[in-house]
Design a protein around this nucleic acid. Structure first.
Lengths: 237, 237
DNA sequence: ATGAACAACTTGTTATAACAGGTTGTTCAT
DNA sequence: ATGAACAACCTGTTATAACAAGTTGTTCAT
């Protein structure tokens, strides 16, 4: 061990995680015991246990006293309520995206749905509205609020049928670290009713989210209206 | 220390957790240092660190090298979307609970909202209905489905103003490891409309959850109807 | 006054040790 | 053959120890 500058427990974590993701260890396989890992990686038990505990925390394995560390089933998909954006949440469905308002730079609304830092207020806002359809039926009306902080060429990108989350990760190396969301059921009215093509007073799910990232002081926001008459939102946690 | 039969790190976890929830330690307060906790509770650092790491995992504190353990902001609103139950989600509000149907043992409904294992079907179901009121206003109508697996004296416990999650954690050492939830907006009708005291066609949020635990093969289920006219549901992830 | 250096904290990482307690397969007496 | 007892694993808990590394306030030389 001890080639990288990373802590040894993190090195072991990454090795085991990669083996699980790559299928070297598969569902319900039992990992080598803690003592075996100590020997094969020249580590002591606290270090090995730290790595295994992190794998438990991140959902890759479960541990059973007397038995060992067992590989978990990989989650089928990630719904909109945990982290993923709507595009990947609906993977496998016939999803199309219609841009209602192309990304434009404009000032923030005051008051905003979440508290904003001074930095965010000063830097301005990239605003975008999109409608997501499954088949011919509009299901999501998305409004995205992205602080205009050092995202070169962002407003000129196309977001037709693309995930904002994937774009941020692949083009800007930004990934999601957490966030906050508010949720309520409302009656369809005005633009929401019009875009989602529903009767007045249809119950609509309204989700407001702040999404935090690994980039220092960079969060973005979205407001999503969803017609749940024929399709549940789902999430794992 | 060492009065209960619980591990010492869990005893310390519960003490600190309670102090945070009760406001003895408030937002951005720095907890006593690890060495201080060692002295005051007659424990060693690995034990203290285990307790603190669990508090980090559960979102109560954050730790900063060189500074200390800092108390996190309590989520405002209703933290029902991540893990916490409704009772702890509403902490600080004037919450009362009315039992509509006391815990009774009965067979499962078929088909159930989530797939059930054979073990769960055989073991029977503890069923409970509760109404949660903030002030005079009923906000949640909860139906709980708990497999009748080795929970001594469970049906005789009182759940008035108590958190099912806390009871499971403290009395049975069961804690939540994850789960799955489905969500939709519906119109208030029938019993839901009646219990929540709303006009017909009021939009109501309907949440169905499977909640997984550290206890082998033990998950429980709940169906929650929530009036979000005056209060958002809230979650962190 | 200013700033560099340092001391005195903090948490982070890692090693060594011992025993408790759950699980599983084997052995042995019946 | 059957079942009880046991040995040999496994993870869980706890203690002791030492050093690394980030933060903060103080001291001291300029």
């Amino acid at each position: 061990m001890a080639k990288s500058n990373l802590p040894q427990y993190k090195q072991l974590y990454e090795i085991l995680r990669k083996h699980i993701v790559d299928g070297v260890f598969q569902e319900d396989d039992v990992l080598p015991s803690e003592n075996e890992l100590c020997i094969t990686h020249k580590l002591t038990r606290p270090t090995v246990r730290h790595a295994l505990d992190d794998l438990v925390k991140d959902g890759f394995i479960r541990k059973r006293k007397g038995k060992g560390s067992i590989v978990n089933k990989k989650p089928k998909g990630i719904g909109i309520l945990s982290i993923a954006g709507t595009t990947s949440a609906l993977e496998g469905l016939d999803l199309t995206t219609r841009i209602l308002v192309k990304p434009i730079i404009r000032p923030w609304e005051e008051p905003f749905i979440f508290p904003l830092s001074e930095l965010e207020k000063e830097s301005g806002l990239i605003y975008m509205e999109r409608l997501r359809l499954v088949g011919e039926e509009p299901l999501f009306y998305d409004i995205s609020y992205i602080p205009n902080l050092n995202l070169p060429r962002f407003t000129s990108r196309s977001f037709e049928n693309k995930s904002l989350f994937d774009t941020l990760r692949k083009s800007y190396n930004i990934h999601i670290t957490g966030g906050e969301q508010k949720l309520k059921a409302i009656k369809a009215e005005g633009k929401v009713r019009e875009y989602l093509c529903v009767e007045p007073n249809t119950p609509i799910l309204h989700l407001e989210r702040r999404i935090d990232t690994n980039k220092y002081l960079f969060s973005f926001y979205s407001s999503i209206y969803c017609n749940t008459q024929n399709l549940d939102l789902y999430g794992i946690f």
